[in-house]
């Protein structure tokens, strides 16, 4: 996948596995100098507050290592449950599926500078 890491979570995780995923992923970003991480959670049937926090942590840590994170394929029931639980997954960018997620990552990589320019223009006015 070139500069991107593609992670597919195939099973429902318990806490230790989720923590292992977090550290493995961050180490892998560092090792391969990845610019984007795509996490496919379409096979995950529950995300509780712990797993939600892990996803948020991954996005923040990846950002510090100069990589963008996109989470794709969240099941509708999982999304509804997360919001009722009170978890808004702030800072986690989502896309509907892997293709859209890859498009989003590419767009973020190549247009990242443009966004900043737009912000600057606004502040000047």
């Amino acid at each position: 996948m070139g500069d991107f890491l593609l992670v597919t979570i195939q099973v429902d995780l318990y806490d230790q596995l989720a923590e292992n995923l977090e550290s493995d992923l961050i180490n892998t970003i560092n090792k391969h100098n990845s610019k984007g991480v795509l996490i496919d959670i379409s096979a995950v049937s529950i995300i509780d507050s712990f797993m939600g926090r892990i996803l948020g942590n991954i996005a923040v840590m990846a950002k510090i290592l100069d990589a963008q994170t996109v989470v794709v394929g969240m099941q509708p029931a999982v999304a509804i449950t997360l919001v009722e639980l009170g978890l808004s997954l702030n800072g986690v960018i989502s896309a509907l599926n892997v293709e859209k997620g890859m498009d989003l990552l590419r767009a973020k990589m190549y247009n990242g500078d443009n966004e900043e320019q737009i912000d600057d223009d606004n502040s000047d006015q």
């Binding site: 806490d15 049937s45 529950i46 995300i47 509780d48 507050s49 712990f50 099941q75 509708p76 029931a77 999982v78 509804i80 449950t81 009722e84 639980l85």
Partner: peptide
Amino acid sequence: SILNQTKLITATSELVR
């Protein structure tokens, strides 16, 4: 429904933690 199952399992996961 899948939604109610998901809510129940998520609640279970929180409490068992």
